[in-house]
Every structure is written in structure tokens, then in C-alpha cells.
Design a protein around this nucleic acid. Sequence first.
DNA 1: ATGATGTGTAGAACTAGTTCTATAGGTAAA
DNA 2: TTTACCTATAGAACTAGTTCTACACATCAT
Lengths: 211, 211
Amino acid sequence: MKQNQPTFLIADDHSIVRQGISLLIKELFFSAKIFHAGSFKEILKIVRENRIDLMILDINFPDGNSLNIISDTKAIQPDTKILIFSAYDEDIYALRYLNAGASGYLNKGSSEDEMKQALKSMMVSGKYITQNIKDKILDSYISKKPINPLELLSNREVEVARLLIKGFGNMEIADMLSIKKSTVSTFKNRIFEKLEIDNLADLIDTFQLYS
Amino acid sequence: MKQNQPTFLIADDHSIVRQGISLLIKELFFSAKIFHAGSFKEILKIVRENRIDLMILDINFPDGNSLNIISDTKAIQPDTKILIFSAYDEDIYALRYLNAGASGYLNKGSSEDEMKQALKSMMVSGKYITQNIKDKILDSYISKKPINPLELLSNREVEVARLLIKGFGNMEIADMLSIKKSTVSTFKNRIFEKLEIDNLADLIDTFQLYS
DNA sequence: ATGATGTGTAGAACTAGTTCTATAGGTAAA
DNA sequence: TTTACCTATAGAACTAGTTCTACACATCAT
């Protein structure tokens, strides 16, 4: 009877991180069956061929966008729980991944205790979300935010954002659109607010992620 | 007699990575004494108070520049061997760190076997350099032509560039590096000139392309 | 219809970033 | 060993970008 043996899939491109997580899981679930995946292809192969209770997913895969892998996995095995293991200092990406189908979000900088807590919580209740992120979710559901933050932007805002990520300065943009530079700044501010970012580098990231 | 007990210092800001490395070391050196450090401060404290044979140093510390920590460590304990544990896919930074005093360079994406090999090699011969990097060193010494434009940048310039692409403003960078904002601007200009670009978006592109 | 929210815009005052110039130490070439 | 270049740095004067406030118009839910 393998029915009761908990199965895990650790998806991270660094084997050393997989080792660490593996160790934690074994401490908590001595009978655990643990699969490792170092690429998107491997994830899909394993998910197709094995029942997976919990996938721990690093979102820094070099392969590309981890949002897709979440929906792909859910399409194959809707009951697989997904715990995001993020290297980003801030939790700005949490909501995106939770919207995409993950049900837990854990920071790579977390302590061992927090990680254990997260693993247990995922296996018992199917979710793990810190207070910080709960607050964000509340905010998000109250204000009915669309899944793709770019949809929050008005047409003019998208227009400005596109020029910004091409590297144009405020004055250049002002000239192109025949508006004043302070107007461009106002747009820039609103764009940043809506996307919950505060610099150009993040704007470029966001556009790459969602378009 | 502790003289023969090998001592290690694992310096990485992610505890999970430290766990993984720790496990590997214990497999290879059962009597190992292992210290953990999650910040530059901790590194220095440990290096001051303990003999360290081998330091495994992650170069993605949020604290700042890992080049300095190498020379600081060497200043306190010249015999400490340093193995760089890099998260960058390409080894573009390898030469810099080797020049700064490290004697080994290992990629985070390496297999467990490679990591074990690296650890053994560091303890036995005091160095570990892959063929790939040996080739680069040769190339760099023979042709003097940089393989990629980032190698045109001086250490300080790379440091500034990395902060720029993280989205920090000139003043923030000036504060972090304890220099004046005009100095940061000067660096920014030189970086742009060397890479033949003229805006932040292109800088981000260039770094993505070559690292 | 009405008060709330979103959009497109800008002036004025301010702050951040740039440019130009300069210096001192390091290293490499002549 | 002198010249030339590169690196790391900054002051002063300037320009670009931000902030704060504001207003008109559109839409939307009550």
C-alpha cells in the first residue's frame, strides 16, 4: 500500500538546495518518497508519471516563467499542492504565484523552523501563508485585482510604461507624447503604485514576466 | 588535539543552502567542525575567533561586495582557503574572485559529485578550478581580448552596475558604497561607454545576455 | 443624481542625477 | 623611467526627474 506514503517533488535547479530541503522533509516525514527535478521538463515528466502530494517549487528557474509550470502541473494533477520557495527578498511576487495555483509561499531566507512549519502545514491543511501575505491577499480580494497586474494599467499608462522599459527618459517620453515631463512622472508613479514596485528594473521584470 | 580536525565555514545567507553544504561536508569529513555565517559580520567574527581551513563563500550576499570579504578574511587568516560558490550561470565572475584571493570556484548548479570533488580538492591541494575556467584564464592571458563586454568593466564598475540593475538609485548606491553621488554618475557613464549603451534598460539587457 | 473612483493632464518647488573638470595612485608600454 | 592610460574619487554647476497639489472629465455603483 503506497497510498499513505507521502510523496514530494523538489523542483529547484540547484542540487544543493534540493539536498537541504530533502533533509528537512525526511526529518518530518520519515517514510516520504522524494523526487527531484532540476528543470521544467523533469517536473512535467515526474508529475505525469507519479502521484505528487506536495511540490516545493523554486521560482528562480533559468528555464523561464514559473507561472506556467504551476498551471501545467495543476492541469495534470489538480490535487498536487504547490509550495513556492522564493529567493526574492520581498514578497512582491507572492500573489502572482498564489493566483496561478500555488497554495503556499515560503521565502528562501526563512529559518529552518519556519520551513518545517511550512512543510507540515502544507501536508496537513494544504496551505501555508504568512500573515504578511495574508494581508496582501485580503487587500487584493477587496480591491478585486486582476490576475495580470498589467491589466490594471490604463492605455496611456501602458504606453508610457512601454517607453520607459525601452530606456527612454522622462523628457524624451514627454516630447514623444506631447505632454509635460511632470505628467510623465505622474504616470510613472501611478504605474509603480499599481504594480507595487518602485524602480525601473522591477518594471522591466514585471513586463517580462507578464508579456 | 584539535589540530587535525578540519574546520569549515559556510557563508551563505540562505540557511537551506548551508544545510545542504553541511551535509556534503559531513559525508566527506566525518570529524569536520562546521561554522555557519549568514552575513559578512558573522564571517568576520568567526574568522577572527577560529582557525578556518576552508571557507565556502556564496557571492550573492545582500550585504554587498564579496570581493572585499575575501581580502578581509585573508588579512585575518592568510591560510584560509576560499571556495567561491556562485549562483551565476556563466562563470563571468570567476576570474575576478580568483584574482581577489579565492582559490576555487564552484557553480551552484553543479552536481553533488562535482561539489564533493571540489571540497576534496580544496582540502587536499588547496584549489579547485574547472577546465572551463582554466580555459578562460588562458584565453584571458593570451588574447587579452575580453570574451564578453562585462569583462571590460573594472571591479568597482561591476559592483556599481549590479546595484544599478537591481534598481537602486544613484544616491542609494553612493550611500551603500560610501562614495559621492557624482562618483556614482561617473561610474555609470564609464559603464555605459564601455558597454556602448546609454540607458538602464540596455544595461539590464546586457547583464541578462551575458550572465 | 451623486459621491467615489479612475484618467489625463500640468505648475511650482524641490531633489536626484549628469556633466565637466580635476587629482592622485596604479600599471603597462616605449 | 618617463609617458600614457586606467581606475577611483569628488566639487560645482547644471539638467532631468519627482512630489505635491490641483483640476476637468468619465464612469460606476448606490
